[in-house]
Design a protein around this nucleic acid. Structure first.
Lengths: 191, 191
DNA sequence: CGCAAACTATGACGACTGGTCTAGTTAGTT
DNA sequence: AACTAACTAGACCAGTCGTCATAGTTTGCG
């Protein structure tokens, strides 16, 4: 079933961008549509579930994108510690280049739309996929399963928190500090 | 000029509660006022700066409250590692008891109202005050200043991230995992 | 080719809530 | 009783999300 227009995709990527930088409630449908995405009526054609469905799908895309980026870094880097550092470096650059607008693409919405089950679910899956990647990388290096899990959560948490602090302070120093610490921690774990 | 009502204070504490659980944009003035806080007109008498000022002041209060709690734990606990673990335990309990509504009182607003300078500033100060407490505790134990700073940021970041994950997953496991890891890290640093 | 059926697009509309502010009432002081 | 500071009610309109009737476009089939 070939698609005939790219409207749906345009909407999704505009939505991903706006929800990423502003959060769920701060992003109005009008803004989203007037951002060149589409006329109003089209939204409810492509997303019968309205704003909520649009957000959930946009988050799934954002989550997947970051997951791919992480998988890539994990492949390329030599050493897990280095990979984590590279990943954080990438996040810091993205944040700085966007004038401290683009932090974690999920966290803002995860917090401000925690009441919506579909949205929450999308975030759970996004976070989960990132964590799983870290966990696998750790077990591949010989770390025991339960230890790998708790180390992966901690790493993910530290990165998320650093993104929050960096965005709030408009200064990527927290990310750099956390990067160094995590590298240390990971490398000690593997030795 | 004697005050005749406690309206202003009631507004602040209701605001603190709602912004804490819902964030800035998701919290409407109507909801806030009908939550028994006050009649509508009073808002702009007590807070000429409107919603923005109300939020900034409410955040300052929330930040101060948590700061005090942290200072208290840091005093009472025997050992810094234990203190961190106790603090996280307190946060986990608060989160669970509120049906996973009350995470960090600043982070939601910090992310979803990052565009407002007064609000951002209030968050910067709140986070800063928590970090300073940790930093002092570390240097008091003989950790070098720069090392103490980066360890304090990392600790704060990990806790914030864990709160985010726990709230999103509706499961405090991330907090428990991070608590154990941080205790380990802190105690290694001091030995 | 020609036609019907399915698909996609459109923006005016409505019910409602958002934050703001002015005009007014109440209470304390002299 | 007059004055002033403390407070409040509700009007206001821009903006919210969602609905709908209508129109246009593409596809498959006879």
């Amino acid at each position: 079933m070939p698609r005939r227009t790219d409207t749906r995709d345009r909407m999704l990527s505009t939505a991903a961008e706006l929800f990423h930088t502003q959060g769920y409630h701060a992003t109005g449908l009008n803004q989203l549509l007037s951002a060149g995405a589409a006329p109003k009526g089209s939204l409810y054609f492509h997303f019968p579930g309205g704003k909520e469905q649009l957000a959930a799908e946009a988050l799934a895309i954002s989550g997947g994108r970051l997951r791919d980026a992480l998988a890539d870094v994990l492949d390329r880097a030599n050493g897990l510690g280095a990979a984590v550092e590279m990943m954080i470096d990438f996040l810091a650059t993205t944040l700085e280049d966007s004038d401290f607008q683009r932090g974690c693409p999920l966290s803002t919405v995860a917090l401000d739309a925690a009441g919506s089950e579909p949205i929450r679910q999308a975030c759970v899956e996004g976070f989960g996929s990132w964590q799983a990647l870290l966990e696998n990388a750790l077990t591949a290096e010989g770390v025991a399963a339960d230890r790998a899990e708790s180390l992966a959560v901690t790493t993910l948490a530290a990165v998320e928190g650093a993104l929050l602090l960096a965005k709030t302070r408009r200064d990527s120093a927290p990310l750099r500090a956390v990067a160094a610490h995590l590298r240390e921690t990971v490398e000690r774990e593997l030795s």
